[in-house]
Design a protein around this nucleic acid. Structure first.
Lengths: 99, 99
DNA sequence: ACTTACCGTAAGACAATACTTACCAATAAC
DNA sequence: GTTATTGGTAAGTATTGTCTTACGGTAAGT
């Protein structure tokens, strides 16, 4: 969740939706240095949102569907609970619970 | 999306799932000051994740289902695309596209 | 063996963000 | 009108996070 708090990381993740990409390739497409890309990828990896594998001297990163699904499930849960909270609040509009 | 990048804001949002809560009440439950809570709520409000209304001198905040649903929809989309990207990558494992 | 290409990590500079204290406005009660 | 309660905003500090430069390490090519 914290991993998606940065706009650059979200952009990297969406770029990986097109298929596996090497680190250097990403660095060429983004306006930041290669080490910066590496650091973002490490965070995404620790969040289980991407996986990596070595291919020769290059290292390909790709999205991890399992990690994305975990987020999707969480937001499903959050949404249903938000609906319940909303309906409950609509019934008794002036909630004034005891401290 | 950036709004959920902070752990405190996520905790506040989950607290609001239980129903509308006033600012002072939140400040008592969290280990940070009331102004800090206000600032977090402002960010959540600008992200359309919560709504607020004045009740007397107090101000009640509650979750905004519409905002949550927007996130849910986005992750649905992201997940389906991640699945497609994964399957496509599985077919041709050693992708070596031209630069 | 030497060179080239690719990538991760460390350290420090820099920027963005979260937090606190102090102040002010609005409502309610008296 | 005065007082008490509630909460938003401003300014400054502190913390966190992002970026770059410098370095080392591995794999492929010659």
């Amino acid at each position: 969740m914290d991993a998606l708090g940065d706009a650059t990381r979200r952009a990297i993740l969406e770029r990986l939706l097109e298929g596996p990409v090497a680190v250097g390739e990403l660095a060429r497409e983004f306006p930041i240095s290669r080490p910066a890309i590496s650091q973002h990828l490490r965070i995404l990896k620790h969040a289980h949102l991407v996986t990596d594998r070595a291919v020769g001297t290059r290292r390909l990163y790709q999205v991890n569907p399992a990690g994305i699904e975990a987020l999707r499930t969480h937001f499903d849960w959050l949404w249903s609970h938000a609906l319940m909270a909303f309906k409950k609040a609509a019934e008794k509009p002036t909630t004034k619970e005891g401290r």
